[in-house]
Design a protein around this nucleic acid. Sequence first.
DNA 1: TTGAAAGCGCTAACAA
DNA 2: TTGTTAGCGCTTTCAA
Lengths: 340, 340
Amino acid sequence: MTVVTLKVIAKATGKSITTVSRALNDYDDVSEATKELVRQVAADLGYVPNIFAQRLQKQHTDTIGLILPTFGPRFSDPFFSELLAGVGNRAADLGYDLLVATRAPGEEEVQAYCSMVQGRQVDGFVLVRTRRKDARIECLKKADYPFVAFGRAEEDNDFPYVDEDGVYAMRLVIQHLVSLGHRRIACISPPPDLMFATYRSQGFQDGLAEAGIGAEDLLFRVGDLTQRDGYEQAIVLLDLPSPPTAIVSCNDLMAFGAMSAAQDRGLVVGKDISITGFDDIPMAEYSHPSLTTIHQPIYQIGGMVCEMLIQLIRGEALEKEHILLKPELMVRQSSGLLTV
Amino acid sequence: MTVVTLKVIAKATGKSITTVSRALNDYDDVSEATKELVRQVAADLGYVPNIFAQRLQKQHTDTIGLILPTFGPRFSDPFFSELLAGVGNRAADLGYDLLVATRAPGEEEVQAYCSMVQGRQVDGFVLVRTRRKDARIECLKKADYPFVAFGRAEEDNDFPYVDEDGVYAMRLVIQHLVSLGHRRIACISPPPDLMFATYRSQGFQDGLAEAGIGAEDLLFRVGDLTQRDGYEQAIVLLDLPSPPTAIVSCNDLMAFGAMSAAQDRGLVVGKDISITGFDDIPMAEYSHPSLTTIHQPIYQIGGMVCEMLIQLIRGEALEKEHILLKPELMVRQSSGLLTV
DNA sequence: TTGAAAGCGCTAACAA
DNA sequence: TTGTTAGCGCTTTCAA
């Protein structure tokens, strides 16, 4: 299979490479006749531009980067596949490619960002799951590289982001549980270096305070976001001398693990104990019992973040630099009236 | 931020661009002293090669492509995130980038392959979820482009693949259920144009035949792989005049939906009815009841496929062109003795 | 051991 | 309206 380049088309049409290039790019200083001819021949020959030559010349890549923070082999947070689909589809619509890498958080991860920046492999980044002390953000800011984050930073939020209002969301959850009569409410939080952990824990505390419930250290556990750990942490909570009547998990996956633990202890979730999640991944609707959780439009968020990034790259002004979404509480069967 | 190129280093060291290039690539016709100097300066200046210039020159991309077949917004098959992590991590280890696109199966999808091929944007493809009449495979074969598939084709299997033995796996499932006393066994199959549907359905039929159970059309349903549809199909099965005592779902997601349906009908899964899945996604262990299913080492398969592809790209001989894995039955709580 | 020069395929300033 | 030329940053002959 011989590669069709501008040169080949030039030879075939008897035109110069330049003319062919301009005809194909629909410049208006090329005669209609020539354009027609060139386009015809190009189509016949199955011409596709060499993207690397274009990129070398134009000094941009039409590619956006997304580095997924993965943890080991059994990584499969459905959250990420949905986000990825949202980003990827929007990128494709806007004519951009998506370069995906997977790295465990740490040195190598930051290194991956740096070298993609230095090598100008992508025009910008979508950054997911912001962290308290986020080396990725620092690196990108220092290089003055375009990026949009899904999530906020701890202090200096001088970059475009989309985030959901985790504090508000968790207050919603607590209000809901309190309205059902619960007062001994436990929380399984994400690792505290993740920014969304901060907001969700804060919302948890605020919600309790609003209801006039004192915080109890024993009822606050930290998990690693997996079902497995949700299970483990729930077991610890259930084994407490005075166990909670409701467990608020800061993501759906841990909530599933917690449900499983409760069920293994013979409790009926939604009756003997209430359990809630956060994210509303598709599974939440189909677990048993179905999971009361906070809905985040993950796919749409992916699209928004992607679109903002591309506007940024193109030098267009953003309508809004910072988008904070008000999430919605989905009341399902895993939360129910306190039965004494 | 001024871009550091070979030219800049050349100027800084007083050497020629050529020498700098060779020094950096550790050619042995460069004096140690020069190499040392060049490397030092390059490091100081933070030099990173322009990958597009390299690719244009070398005519290969060090990138592999993966186009995920996605269906709509609520796409979030954990299967894919795990596969992606497997492919991505191995690719990174071997010095390759991963270009991910998402397309719904169809015209545009094939188009995406074609243009990535024509534009030589990637050195090869990982192709997932083979189909009965697979335009992607035809396209790639015709172009003589390197690819490795996760899954086999219907007839001409003259390409490298990794697959699991779905027939064998399903026979395992049926044997298990039969040993528990079940004889009215239903199947929720994937769309029949997917190759793995063929094998799994076949295994289902074979299993029944081995047990001397006649096939009943009413007990065979086709679903779209989502929880939602698993739910719907299970409802249809449960509403049968003479409903099944066991439902074999061809993937875990539909099995979860089916469990949910059964539970909504007041049945205790694992007791009143047995339900099995296929894939063993992480969730399978933490559903309630935990799901009896077929374990596939998805992450590892991703790694294998990736490694085979890179060998292919590099022109190395493959140890094995075709790998067929014997999957393992994970017996959990969703399947139990038939209670009459 | 080093450098000059060509060229990968493309775009764009400038001339004609 | 078209062609000539230069150059994006790199690798790789070929000469020196």
